[in-house]
């Protein structure tokens, strides 16, 4: 046991202040990565600053072609939101497939995005839906946000206050779960945008975390269907490998899930 303080912030400014006052603070949102890591003593913090009661980080809104979700919104709130379902139904379905009911009622979009677990679902959608990550100090394009495994463009103490997604013409998601952890071993979000561009976000499989599959995007820009993917493949050298799936298998899964996502536009398919 070691001394640990819990502080509940009521505003973003207060959260920043509490974070800076501590010697080694951590922000607490859903806690699904942080708390198990602390229990195993792989991380030690002196203060936890709880972000979940900050009113400014709540809410979901649609404005023009943009869907904006507060950083503190839980997966359950997002997946059940009529605004999200109406704007990007595949996103609502994807979020509804994260973890289990308990996880979805604690885990938040801001926590997931900021943590950038290489097997989290949200980063693939953020990339495919050209998201903008809003923080307490700036806005960062998703393409620039996810930098490496568990690494993001966030500065020390910076808070994800919300995420804006570009509402596409159509989109779909498919993932193949790890049989043990149920995180995606390969999750692919495909989106055709209203300007005709196509974006493909991949999670669970990349050695460097979530990434855009540019070759697939180019192929799908001309023909937004699974046929367009025939003959293109991913380099296994870029894929993660572990006891659950080798790089070769993950490269195959990404291709297969891309096809499934295209076959399930407007929704999300989870295998296993």
């Amino acid at each position: 046991m070691y001394p640990l303080s819990y502080r509940r912030a009521s505003s973003v400014d207060e959260a920043r202040r509490l974070f800076q006052e501590a010697s080694d603070a951590a922000y607490l949102a859903g806690g699904h990565t942080l708390l198990p890591t602390m229990k195993q003593r792989l991380a030690v913090h002196d203060v936890l600053v709880d972000l979940t009661r900050i009113e400014a980080m709540r809410g979901i809104s649609v404005s023009g072609d943009t869907l904006t979700i507060g950083g503190g919104m839980t997966h359950a709130e997002v997946s059940e939101s009529s605004e999200v379902k109406g704007a990007i139904s595949s996103l609502a379905a994807m979020v509804g497939s994260i973890g289990d009911a308990q996880v979805r009622h604690r885990g938040t979009i801001g926590g997931s995005i900021a943590n950038n677990d290489p097997a989290a679902d949200y980063p693939s959608a953020a990339l495919a839906l050209a998201a903008t990550i809003k923080t307490d100090s700036r806005e960062i394009a998703a393409d620039d946000f996810f930098t490496a495994l568990y690494e993001t463009a966030l500065e020390e103490g910076e808070i994800v206050t919300g995420v804006s997604f570009r509402i596409p013409e159509t989109a779909g998601y498919a993932k193949f779960r790890n049989p043990a952890s149920r995180y995606p071993m390969a999750g692919v979000f495909v989106a055709k945008h209203k300007d005709g561009s196509v974006r493909v976000g991949v999670t669970g499989a990349g050695m460097e975390g979530a990434f855009r599959w540019h070759e697939a995007e180019e192929a799908l820009a001309g023909n937004f269907s699974g046929e367009a993917l025939a003959g293109i493949s991913l380099d296994p050298g870029m894929m993660m490998g572990d006891i659950h799936g080798s790089p070769e298998y993950r490269a195959n899964l990404v291709a297969v899930m891309a096809g499934r996502a295209l076959a399930n536009l407007g929704s999300a398919e989870a295998i296993i």
Binding site: P179, A180, S181, I243, H244, I272
Partner: peptide, 16 residues
Amino acid sequence: LITATFNDYAMPRAHD
């Protein structure tokens, strides 16, 4: 032991 947690040791769940 690589499969030292339920994150890596896959137990059967109802939907399996």
